[in-house]
């Protein structure tokens, strides 16, 4: 089932009165069901913070976030976890070093009181293209790409509708990145996931996303379709600079 995401005037402010610091001054965007929406921008521009707000890992925000038309703030934790899951940037840091893959995948099933655990774990690990024997491995017995697959399996096991991808491939080699991007692409086609993907690599955006938002200092400067990248059809100066730099960096034009 695909869900839409609607984010209106999302803001985070620290402190009150004249010294109040606005971290996110007000972010508004909407994601269609089944769309892959990219968030790009320089470090510190608030891309990951938006994901953390959507997932309620950060809950001090104001504004509205609606997932499938329902406010995420009112969603009970259990329901929210089945609705959305997050894949983090660094597969070396996001898996518990002393838990086997089986433990990692089993825990959400226990918490959510789901049956057929063995069956579900096997399916999740097969879905991400790993052999079933890997269930008994520990993170140190896996390569970076395999770890990221496990992290994706962990996100898939609760059958969410929305996946929040926080730079899922930036810690990986290009050869491994290709495998993970292909995997994410395939899963989206098969299951109709909605993705919100944070990345700094416009080539990845061009490959994966339908539309993307360019962020700067916590604000969305412009939302662009992927077709705007090759000819740099952005209008905002920062978005132009970003796309221009990426094109120059690729040396393609």
């Amino acid at each position: 089932m695909s869900v839409s995401v609607e984010c209106r005037d999302l803001a985070i402010t620290f402190g009150t009165g004249p010294t109040a610091a606005k971290v996110l001054p007000g972010v508004t965007f909407s994601v269609q069901p089944g769309e892959c929406f990219g968030l790009v921008g320089e470090s510190g521009s608030g891309k990951s913070t938006v994901l953390r707000c959507v997932s309620m890992l950060t809950d001090i925000w104001t504004g509205d976030i609606l997932i499938g038309g329902k406010p995420v703030r009112d969603m009970p934790l259990i329901k929210r976890c089945r609705m959305l899951q997050m894949v983090f940037q660094d597969p070396y840091g996001s898996l518990h070093p002393r838990q086997s893959v089986r433990t990692v995948l089993n825990e959400p099933l226990v918490i959510h009181k789901l049956g057929d655990r063995e069956e579900r774990m096997r399916k999740a690990i097969t879905d991400v293209g790993l052999p079933i024997s890997f269930l008994d491995r520990f993170p140190h017995q896996l390569s970076g790409g395999q770890r990221q697959r496990v992290a994706i399996a962990r996100a898939l096991i609760l059958e969410p509708s929305l996946l929040l991808l926080d730079e899922p491939t930036s810690a990986l080699d290009v050869s491994v990145q290709a495998e993970i991007l292909n995997l994410l692409q395939r899963l989206r086609e098969e299951r109709g996931f909605t993705y919100i993907m944070v990345t700094h690599d416009l080539a990845v955006v061009d490959h994966m996303c339908d539309r993307f938002a360019v962020m700067l200092h916590g604000e969305i400067t412009e939302v662009l379709p992927r077709e705007a990248i090759p000819g740099n059809r952005a209008t905002h100066p920062y978005a132009r600079e970003l796309i221009g730099a990426s094109l120059e960096y690729e040396g393609a034009h």
Partner: peptide
Amino acid sequence: AQPRIGGGRAPL
């Protein structure tokens, strides 16, 4: 294996 701007969307 590298995605490219303006490249096709075929699996890498």
